[in-house]
Design a protein around this nucleic acid. Structure first.
Lengths: 364, 364
DNA sequence: ATTATAAATGCAACCGGTTGCATTGTCAAG
DNA sequence: CTTGACAATGCAACCGGTTGCATTTATAAT
């Protein structure tokens, strides 16, 4: 493998001249340029070694990200693929690459992140919001480093991290809107099926849910608030956890992601309950999949790819210019109304009472 | 940011000693080790700069991949996420990271790949099979480099590249099996809805399809062979392209991915044709989504994550040891029988004839 | 006490670029 | 003919590690 010194020797110039020819940023006589290029051609020299270059200029044109839980079903949901897509689009347009690492546990997310930063392989870092305590620790750890990072998600508002860069969706407001949408359809008993209760987003959404009900003077029923594993089966199980409520059972379900909403559809189908005639269901994310099930899911579209694009833009900007740019960005979501929601039925749904509680086996 | 020289000065040892302490691969007296560690602690030195390290040892512990078509809907399908997942699992277990770059066109895939390799930022490279001509060019270009690579997919059999590393699914055989499965259900008019005809996998599957029919002495009807865009709408359009065949119309559809199969389900539903009572449909990939639609899709599970794991293993092995390992690996697929297939109906399906050919508008 | 042996550490070259500054060469103005 | 200005290139230090070999020191064997 040839180096610029080899090329220099062949072209009878100094290595620095070769470097300048390839950088294109210095004035080099046309004749020398040609000599260098043809020498490079001869030797099969394609481009300066990026590693050596990075060492010298202290830039890698790479942004890093750690994927949580590589061994779990983290890729089933459309969340991560959408994030990756958004990051990649911006990165590609700015001539950046993405260095992806894995992790195995919440603690490991931080370990891996620190290792990636400490190794100086990346110019900036994207952190994906996780459990609240992990986020706090992660931010604290990253702030002790000098690599810029932007978070997709945020820390609890109370937190005084005004210097933090983040982009998030307005989960609270969006959830409030979709709950209002259900209220407008006449629903009064609306179940909230959240995801991981340790995550901020789950609390934000719960806030949106509770505020909207409160404003409408609808008493909150804790039996309608449930948390499930972020997967199809999570939603499915949740229905079975609520179906013993008799006349207090929900006439509508809000699920914190589309997979769970799809699980809810399955459970209801199994119970012989018609959607949307008897019960309405809404999902969250607006994954492609939500449009493919039957009935097509009414869902809260969360523009994850767009958020990731913004995050990458902010990051790259703060890498390239010292003066940090706009620190935060809140994007809004959008209700995609489809076929899983309808006017509440005057006859409340009848959930069969089942002596068989096998379904509860794998509850959260 | 402190370096090993700073640490060395503080600990009153030579930089090489610090290097050895951190590498852990040399005998260092316990006392010196402690002195070095505490000096490092003091200075906030966390680990040796990986860039400098890479430059010196000529290894980055990174494998590269270029994502095709970042601006298209490449992430809608479960293919790429599954690949990423598999790569990441193996990489994580072997302390490797993945450098991901984007690309914009077929030609650009090669450009970007060469740029990534030429920059020496990666120790090995994963190439995703694409159009046949692109694959050929890509392989030729990569073989001219000295970085090992493994392909997910393969080149046409005739090709004498026995030294190539690849892992692929046995698409031909798998397709043959699922067609045989349909034949066993009594279907005789089976439509083949392939993906991009320029891709080898499409030809492999078509071979499986044709061979199986031929062996069963069923005449091939070219009108039942169609190619569509690898998305939900592709499958949907395809049905409308065939529904004018009257009594020659298919009683079963084979689709080359689940998204297209889902589109086929939608078209049939729209036409008032019952699945599986009147027409059977099978998909390919075994994406999570295939199990969520109604009727749940019978599909050919292709273990993309597993293939990616194998690919990463082969790659890492050939990075770490000079003697190249097993060169090729063919994994098998599996039929997941669900609810979209049934015994052929004695009454052939009646596809409504529609004067309205609006649906054909966006044909391939 | 002497010498052979091994353990611990230092030395210096090397990995492959970049870049501020110095030097040389060229041309035009004075 | 001298001088100044500028273009083109060379020089050498630097980026931050690693590692084969030499040197010093401690330990054991004779």
């Amino acid at each position: 493998m040839s180096t610029i010194r080899d090329v220099a020797a062949a072209a009878q110039v100094h290595p620095s001249t070769v470097s300048r020819v390839f950088s294109g940023k210095a004035r080099i006589s046309e004749e020398t340029r040609q000599r260098v290029f043809s020498a490079a051609e001869q030797l099969g020299f394609q481009q300066p070694n990026a590693i050596a270059r990075s060492l010298s200029i202290q830039r890698t044109n790479t942004i890093g990200i750690i994927v949580p839980h590589v061994f779990d079903g983290y890729f089933e949901d459309s969340f991560f693929p959408q994030i990756m897509r958004g990051l990649l689009q911006t990165a590609y347009s700015s001539q950046f690459r993405i260095l992806v690492g894995g992790s195995n546990s919440h603690q490991d997310e931080i370990t891996q992140a620190l290792e990636m930063l400490g190794s100086h392989q990346v110019d900036g870092f994207i952190v994906l919001s996780s459990h609240l305590d992990v986020d706090e620790a992660m931010v604290a750890a990253l702030q002790a480093q000098d690599t810029p990072f932007v978070m997709i998600g945020q820390l609890p508002a109370a937190n005084t991290h005004t210097d933090l860069l983040w982009v998030d969706a307005d989960h609270e407001k969006a959830t409030a809107q979709i709950i209002a949408y259900l209220l407008a359809l006449g629903h009064r008993r609306i179940a909230y099926v959240g995801g991981d209760p340790e995550m901020l987003v789950t609390k934000q959404r719960l806030n949106g849910y509770q505020q909207t009900l409160r404003r409408a003077n609808i008493p909150l029923d804790p039996r309608l608030i449930d948390y499930a594993y972020f997967a199809e089966d999570g939603g499915y199980q949740s229905v079975y956890r609520m179906c013993h409520l008799g006349s207090d059972a929900p006439t509508a379900f809000y699920a914190a992601n589309d997979l769970m909403a799809i699980g809810i559809l399955r459970a209801l189908r199994e119970l012989g309950i018609q959607v949307p005639e008897q019960v309405s269901v809404v999902g969250t994310n607006g994954s492609p999949e939500s449009g493919h099930v039957i009935p097509a899911l009414t869902t809260l579209y969360v523009p994850y790819a767009e958020m990731a694009r913004h995050a990458a833009e902010m990051l790259i900007q703060s890498i390239q210019e010292e003066g940090s740019p706009i620190g935060q960005r809140l994007v809004s979501c959008e209700i995609i109304a489809r076929d899983s929601t309808a006017q509440v039925n005057i006859h409340p749904p009848i959930y069969p009472t089942l002596g068989d509680s096998a379904h509860l086996a794998h509850s959260i």
